[in-house]
Nucleic acid binder design. Structure first.
Length: 470
RNA sequence: GCCCCCUUCGUCUAGUGGUUAGGACGCAAGAUUUUCAUUCUUGAAACAGGAGUUCGAUUCUCCUAGGGGGUGCCA
């Protein structure tokens, strides 16, 4: 036993890496990193029928995207069956487990009766050997103590006491000889040298059962930390909407991994008033005692805000690379107002400094850049169309076309003096000049600053767009 | 049914036996500005309810209510 901390994330590969799992992985990863320990991944695929390789790939891809890579190759629980059987046999030999031949119907009956009587269901086989004929098919059950209580010393929940008479004799080995989760999780955590088990609190009650198995085996207990689940925006379980999406889907939605990571870290964990927390800071600050006991709701608006921060901070080249990847991935479901495959990334990059100020996701970034890449009859939004309909507006545009055509260069400062002078000459408020111009250049009433639009479009294209509506 | 966990602004949270209960998102107003966004300023907004302990409870205890989880040959 070394002092080094070892944590693990142990998903069952029956679906994508959902947001709750991602946070569990993040906490385990952060704790290992914070304490200079190891972070391992174990695929809990003992339920072969429901486990898929697609799910395994999706989970690993999601973790990789979030920057949560394990320090060693993943352990596949299904490949450790021999060891699980070995331990079950040991338990059988030491009298901590027994073969159970009862058919399902009998168990159903017992459970129904227990429920009707208002007590926890207990499997009767443990009291007296079953008298029924052995049919050859059996499961191995753990002989759970009836007297006393089991205490879980939980780093997040505190001491949780469960009376032993609440815990039934759980199945260790199924009738086909495969191990159940309850057995496998104990054996694997022990064998992998896991020192800290950080997982969702849906495992809290079952933890008491696992502790009994540890004790029967004479093994040391790991430290347990059961973190509350994440709820959806409506307070119910994570579902539909944003909550139940897979981590990878947030990528397709245009979120940055550091944005999601930051948001997730703050969901149920905090460090004073800190909101923007970099990966480095997370590693420096993360600890179990700052994890909240109450479940948190997933708030997409705050995620947007945090993500917007990271978009603005992001390096331009990196953003362009992300954009290219996102577009070629074909995973975006957003319907764009223009053909994003026609984007000229050189021009995009030049405009990025002022574009990223107004985007919270990569998708929004592509949308605010739309004016750059639409082709000639510029699609007009109603409001924009209205602002250039009347004669005075058209007259302004006509004058603007002449004015802009006469400029020797198309730089911001030149344009500023030019446009301001133009407005002054005609005794117009600047908005009267800028709005029609914006409409005709971008097709919308809202856009980046007019000088930025002008510069990013260039003199030739600007004039082409103005003249197109005259 | 039985068992376990949880409860500070709408949301994420800080916090203390005595505080003007703090921050963030969102919302509202204002400043900046050619629009939108960014940025900045200001504002509204919370200790679930009831007992008890105490000189004093948001903080400690109990009860209730509400929410969540478990109770599988799922994990």
């Amino acid at each position: 036993m070394s002092d080094k901390i070892v944590t693990r994330f142990a998903p069952s590969p029956t679906g994508f890496l959902h947001i709750g799992g991602a946070r569990t992985a993040l906490f385990n990863w952060a704790y290992a990193r914070a304490k200079g320990g190891k972070f391992l991944l174990r695929i809990e695929d003992t339920d072969r029928a429901r486990s898929t390789t697609e799910a395994i790939d999706a989970i690993m891809a999601g973790m990789k995207w979030l920057g949560l890579e394990a320090d060693e190759a993943p352990v596949y629980q299904s490949k450790r069956q021999a060891r699980h059987v070995e331990v079950a046999t040991k338990l059988l030999q030491s009298g901590h487990a027994y073969r159970s031949y009862a058919p399902d119907q009998e168990l159903e009956k017992v459970r129904a009766e227990a429920r009707a009587a208002g007590v926890a269901p207990r499997y009767p086989g443990r009291h007296e050997p079953l008298t029924m004929a052995k049919r050859g098919e059996y499961v191995v059950r753990f002989k759970s103590p009836i007297e006393g209580e089991t205490v879980i010393h939980d780093e997040v929940q505190g001491d949780v006491v469960i009376k032993n008479d609440q815990l039934d004799d759980l199945v260790l080995l199924r009738s086909d000889g495969t191990p159940t989760y309850m057995l496998a999780v104990v054996v694997d955590d022990h064998d992998m040298g896991i020192t800290h088990v950080i997982r969702g609190d849906d495992h809290l009650t079952n933890c008491a059962r696992q502790i009994q198995i540890y004790k029967a085996l004479g093994w040391d207990l790991p430290v347990f930390a059961h973190i509350p689940l994440i709820h959806g925006a409506d307070g119910a379980k994570l579902s539909k909407r944003h909550g139940a999406l897979g981590a990878e889907q947030y990528k397709a939605l245009g979120y940055l991994p550091e944005g999601l990571q930051n948001y997730l870290a703050r969901l149920g964990w905090s460090h004073g008033d800190e909101e923007i927390i970099t990966t480095e800071q997370l590693i420096e600050w993360f600890d179990l005692d700052a994890i909240n006991k109450a479940p948190a709701r997933f708030d997409i608006q705050k995620l947007d805000h945090v993500n917007g921060h990271y978009i603005r901070e992001a390096d331009d080249d990196r953003l362009i690379a992300d954009l290219k990847e996102l577009i070629s991935s074909g995973e975006m479901t957003h319907e764009f107002s223009y053909d994003v495959r026609k984007i000229e990334f050189d021009r995009f990059k030049d405009a990025l400094p002022f574009l990223k100020e107004r985007a919270k996701t990569l998708i929004e970034l592509l949308e605010v850049a739309s004016y750059l890449f639409v082709s000639l009859p510029i699609p007009m939004e109603d409001k924009a169309a209205k602002s250039i309909k009347d004669a005075p507006a058209l007259d302004i545009l006509k004058g603007l076309a002449d004015e802009l055509a006469s400029l020797p260069s198309f730089e911001k400062e030149t344009l500023e003096t030019s446009l301001k002078g133009f407005a002054e000459k005609r005794e117009l408020k600047f908005g009267k000049v800028a709005q029609p111009l914006r409409a005709v250049l971008t097709g919308t009433p809202n856009s980046p600053g007019i000088y930025d639009v002008l510069v990013s479009l260039g003199q030739e294209e600007t004039l082409r767009r103005i003249r197109d509506v005259l």
